[in-house]
Design a protein around this nucleic acid. Structure first.
Lengths: 147, 147
DNA sequence: TTACAACTTAAAGTCGACTTTAAGGCAAGA
DNA sequence: TCTTGCCTTAAAGTCGACTTTAAGTTGTAA
């Protein structure tokens, strides 16, 4: 079977080689065999990385992905693993959706109703409506995360 | 007018004193007056912080908040400032909502349709359906961010 | 006087997922 | 032999919003 170098694998799955080394280091990819010190992969790693990418696409963090691979008894079928993790993740996503909806409502109210001349006035209004002691959940809206 | 210490201000707005010092350092709060070295605030700072909190609640990052305060000609009314920034933020939130919807669809498909025995099989399936080269936008689903 | 609480600063640490850097190894081609 | 190009590692850097730590200051109470 064809042995792939790390950069071939990276190219095929759309990652940087450094990301693949990182995955190995934190234990979501098993250590690759070496040919005179260099990693050589067979095509099975592409399946593994496809699963990792799919999991990342659906909001899983790397330690949840580790759980997907290693957090079950060995015989547990893939479908069951996905079931469990997906259920949890869907709940998280629903909560997140709710938070975003709240933010949108607030923003729209702000846009439609704010007639303030100064931000100080604005602040007074927010304080009066008791809106300042609502706990702030920063909601990590990352920009330009793409490579 | 009553002069507040930093921890009184912090308590009233639900922040840590260190956060307020941080805001001053990065320039979204003006340097406070000092009484023998210690910061003393008058109640106007509460309005200022209310605006900051409201902006954080609606997804603004600290440099956007700086823009809200200092990124306009001085005479620009608060309502106009909110208009501009909110329009932008709403667009961002809509995009985010779309991303989450995509993730949910993928997750549900995974839950309903995956009959795989092994994750390797899963990966093969994902590869076949061309799902691995979709660019991954990590979507920072932070957990336990609240103190 | 001594203890204490609350403040000050600069610098470093945190979280997650990587990337970048620095220093070096190894094989193929000119 | 030397260069080129790809590989290796460990360690440090990045981003955002803070917090924590270490070391020192100030005012008040016992």
């Amino acid at each position: 079977m064809a042995q792939l170098t790390i950069s071939e694998v990276a190219r095929q799955v759309g990652l940087q080689p450094s990301a693949i080394r990182y995955y190995e280091r934190i234990g979501i990819l098993l250590p690759a065999q070496r040919m005179s010190g260099q990693r050589r992969y067979d095509t099975a790693v592409l399946h593994r990385l496809a699963v990792i990418q799919r999991a990342r696409q659906t909001g899983f963090m790397l330690d949840e992905i580790r759980e997907l691979f290693f957090g079950f008894r060995d015989a547990a079928p893939a479908s069951q693993r996905w079931q469990k993790l997906s259920r949890r993740k869907l709940a998280e996503l629903e909560e997140l959706t709710g938070q975003i909806k709240t933010m949108r409502h607030l923003l729209e109210k702000m846009m439609d109703c704010c007639r303030c001349e100064t931000l100080d006035q604005c602040g007074r209004g927010i304080l009066r409506s008791g809106g300042a002691n609502v706990t702030v959940k920063p909601l990590p809206v990352k920009r330009r995360t793409g490579r």
